[in-house]
Amino acid sequence: MRFDSALGLESRRGPAATAAKVVLYAAMVLVFTGPLLGLLVSAFGRTLDPTAFSLWPDDFTLDNFVLAKDQNVYLYLLNSFVVVGFGLLLQMLVSVFAAYALARKRFRGMTFVMLLMLATMMLPEEIIAIPLSLVLADLPVLHLDLIGTYAGMILPVGAWGFSILVMTEFMKEVPVELEEAARIDGAGEFRIFATIIVPLCRPALGVIGVFGFTMIWDQYLLPLIVSTDSTTWTLPVALRSLRSNEEVGIGVLLAASLLALLPSIIAFLAFQRQFMRGLTSGAVKG
């Protein structure tokens, strides 16, 4: 729904209505892009006051990003990319295969499985923090200690109820007739899954890709539990340390914050077409 339609401005004509629309859109741009623009400008300037807003840095410099290297910011950024890269890949694989089983197969206890996934989405991270740390310290069956490793930060995000539910609901909308025609032509189960089901679910993959990337990238409690020293910190954890360190200037903190923000924006822009198709596909079906 358009904002001007919701406010009754779409049906109005004349200079007053045009001025109201301009003011409305300008306010929206200021609210949503103002903080980002302020962060961008401050990160490239020698400002001592992060609340001082400007459209262009008074003294443009890259010193903040150079000094960030001395604080190991780029190491933390690399750690974040490693975790989000392997974590998102694992999460999307698990979501696709689990959704295929839930959407196309019928088995006893399927309703219970769906309720269990919904229950995991309702539990705050703080509640499962201690049990999760105990499990990661002694992985059942394998008896592996994943504390202090990348695997300890990747495996827990490998399955996310939200992504599985989104993929399940989208796969239910794929016509069964396509599978039946493929089986008549001699296609096997995996071939049907890989060449028919998955390509038709690209919009849903864009949705879970954007949300999954943001969820993993913004993880704070999990890396804090797993990390045993600063060399395995991710950028969100490092930002808290930089903020509490009085020796670190505000410019370095702003530069690190900008580096933490940009990947989420880039991920959204990369998946934007599939993301928007995935969000609107449910509105045009049926």
Rank of each mutant, 00 (worst) to 15 (best):
Y220P: 01
F268C: 11
I192H: 00
A27F: 01
G249W: 08
G188C: 03
I164T: 11
S11E: 15
L134F: 13
E126K: 11
L253C: 09
F60A: 15
G152E: 05
F193P: 01
M92Y: 09
V207D: 03
T232I: 09
L165V: 13
I192W: 01
T280L: 12
I184E: 07
L139A: 01
I265Y: 09
Y220W: 10
A182M: 01
S281K: 12
G249T: 13
V284H: 00
R273A: 13
V141K: 08
F162Q: 09
L155T: 08
I196E: 02
E125L: 14
T33G: 07
E247Q: 14
G206H: 06
T168V: 01
N79A: 04
L118E: 06
A283W: 13
V94D: 06
G161W: 09
D49C: 08
P156L: 06
L48K: 15
L89I: 15
V66R: 15
P50Q: 04
A283G: 11
G251H: 07
M28H: 08
A119G: 10
G212F: 05
L165D: 07
I216K: 03
T168F: 00
L279Y: 08
L9P: 02
A99I: 04
F65N: 06
G282F: 03
L155V: 15
M276W: 10
G8H: 03
T195C: 01
K105C: 14
L221R: 09
L55K: 04
P57I: 09
T61S: 13
G34T: 02
Y74T: 02
V237Y: 10
S227M: 03
L77G: 08
P57L: 07
K69I: 12
Y150L: 06
V82G: 01
E126D: 11
L115N: 12
H143R: 14
Q219P: 06
T231D: 12
I154N: 08
P156I: 05
L9V: 03
V174S: 05
G278A: 05
I196M: 02
P236V: 08
F44R: 03
A20H: 09
K21W: 04
M28W: 12
V198Y: 00
G152D: 04
V66M: 13
H143K: 11
Y100S: 09
G209P: 00
